[in-house]
Nucleic acid binder design. Structure first.
Length: 487
RNA sequence: CGGGGUGUAGCGCAGCCUGGUAGCGCACUUCGUUUGGGACGAAGGAGUCGCGUGUUCGAAUCACGCCACCCCGACCA
């Protein structure tokens, strides 16, 4: 069986095997046999571009909220990391340490942590940068990779090393910090829903699920194609915990010394995995046009040599005009591959639209468009070469919206209101989201986790405001929560 | 760290039970015919059989030890 067909089949089981399929764009790092590195990724150019497009959109959205980029150190001295006690307890089990240099004969006086996140190095730096209320707010983001030595890595979703962005802000008031936390959550929501076509539930994490050291953690939770949940982005209101731990203080207008209020928020390459699992089908990847490395691929088709020249001339002209219109175009004029082979190849890579140009099209001044999200004949249309860029732009918008609505409908179909722990167990066991009234007691939450493997994904910000009985205690509450098994 | 599984050509695998010196598909190279939904023929290149020790005239195959990876848990906020 051809390798790529095996990949496509593997993708049909989107639970775990999608990673093997996606080998085409991302592969496991092949390091020395002895190297204790697993779950790391090497991103091939096509996959990187996919991420890069997403990153550019996110970065632009950050800047629209006055955030600026910076770069902080990779290595964090041990003494910095241990200052915030909840934080250190939360992260130390998965921290990788640098303890020696050279061939091991020289021990470092103080071990250096490879950052699992950068609060602990940014805190001390912010302490120096912040002196006056005039220095606030401090709104900084960095793009970097971090290392978390999880016991069980999962390709894309929980790799030992992963690329992400982490924003860190400091504010004069708690209200302003809270506002920023919610603002960034909204940036993530709009990015995921509008650009990645992934519907999410914005909400608050329970006490048990929040970030170590945070006052409050917000999340955007998504449902994968197999019904499991994925935290696609988080935004933390850190209160004054980190400011106290790292001594970030400022003088206010009345010359009073005060602690700053800080936030942090992050989103990683795991969303690429989310995109694979939310939109992918039996034929392979399906990419939303806004982030696809190539929005359309042009396949020239010819038999005789005299046709070839005319076809290639037309393809070249079409490609130029589409590129000039700002559309990301790939022309696959490679020889030795049949047209059918190319069709399959680019479908596997998820290109949203295929443009076929053959001798008949040259004659009719037409092209054939084929939509990736609608396989088969119904996704094909014959259109004129005139006004193609404008037509394509409309097709892209249509695909983008169709992908979102399909995923949203899937999530709705797989979300069930439950009113007993028994019912909840059945629903999450069937890989669905369970929505239940829940007052927030940690004991009940833990009991459900032990019994069913499901965790509280979030307390949605969008609440009905109707009173019901808490699933764990039976006490009246108006608060609903989402329970599910998660990656 | 528990339970299970797998390591043989770039990728996917067979061969192992019953020991005799390695094979299939895809990919790759060359030539020819093909090309609007994964073409075909011919010729060819490519493997320390995960590592080590042992048994044997002889080990991919049997025994023991080790290593790596995958899956299920635990863990992961």
């Amino acid at each position: 069986m051809p390798q790529d067909k095996a990949y496509a089949q593997a993708l049909a089981n989107k639970t775990t095997d999608f990673a093997g399929w996606y080998n085409d764009v991302v592969m496991r790092a092949e390091l020395a046999e002895e190297a204790p590195v697993r779950g790391c990724m090497v991103v091939r150019p096509y996959g990187w571009t996919l991420w890069e497009n997403s990153q550019a959109i996110l970065d632009r959205k950050f800047k629209e909220t006055d955030v600026v980029n910076a770069a902080f150190p990779l290595l964090i001295p041990r003494s910095f990391l241990v200052k915030e006690s909840d934080h250190v307890e939360g992260f130390v089990p998965e921290v990788a340490w640098v303890t020696q240099v050279g061939s091991g004969q020289e021990e470092l006086v103080e071990p250096l942590a490879v950052r699992p996140t950068s609060e602990a190095i940014i805190g001390p730096i912010y302490a120096k940068w912040v002196q006056s209320y005039r220095d606030l707010p401090l709104l900084i983001n960095q793009w970097c990779s971090v290392v978390r030595w999880e016991k069980r890595p999962r390709l894309f979703l929980r790799t030992s090393e992963f690329w992400w962005q982490e924003g860190h802000t400091a504010h004069a008031t708690q209200e302003e910090a809270e506002e920023r936390t919610r603002m960034m959550l909204e940036v993530y929501r709009s990015f995921l829903e509008e650009d990645m076509a992934i519907p999410v539930i914005p909400g608050l994490k329970s006490e048990a699920q929040k970030f170590p050291g945070a006052l409050r953690t917000y999340t955007v939770e998504a449902m994968m194609g197999d019904g499991r949940a994925l935290q696609a982005g988080t935004s933390h209101n850190l209160g004054d915990h980190f400011a106290r731990a790292y001594d970030i203080q400022y003088l206010d207008e009345s010359n009073e010394r005060r602690y700053a209020w800080t936030t942090s928020w992050g989103m990683s390459t795991r969303i690429i995995g989310a995109m694979v699992m939310v939109h992918g089908d039996q034929q392979g990847l399906v990419l939303p046009p806004r982030v696809a490395p190539y929005q359309a691929v042009i396949i020239p088709i010819w038999r005789a040599d005299e046709q070839k020249a005319a076809v290639l001339e037309a393809v070249d002209r079409i490609a130029k005009s589409l590129k000039a219109a700002g559309i990301r175009i790939k022309v696959d004029a490679s020889e030795g591959k049949s047209a059918g082979w190319k069709f399959n190849e680019w479908e596997l890579k998820g290109v949203p639209v295929r443009i076929e140009v053959g001798p008949r099209d040259v004659e009719n001044n037409s092209v054939v468009l084929a939509r990736r999200d609608r396989p088969g004949k119904e996704g094909k249309e014959f259109v004129s070469q005139d006004g193609l860029a404008i037509h394509l732009a409309a097709v892209f918008e249509n695909i983008q919206s169709a992908l979102y609505h399909k995923a949203a409908a899937f999530r709705e179909d797989n979300t069930v209101d439950v009113s007993s722990e028994q019912e909840l167990a059945e629903v999450v066991g069937a890989r669905k989201f369970a929505r239940a009234y829940w007052g927030g007691d940690p004991e009940g939450e833990e009991r459900i986790k032990q019994a069913t493997g499901a965790t509280t994904r979030c307390i949605p910000l969008d609440q009905l405001g109707i009173e019901g009985k808490s699933i764990t205690t039976g006490n009246p509450t108006t608060q609903q929560a989402i329970f599910a098994r998660a990656y």
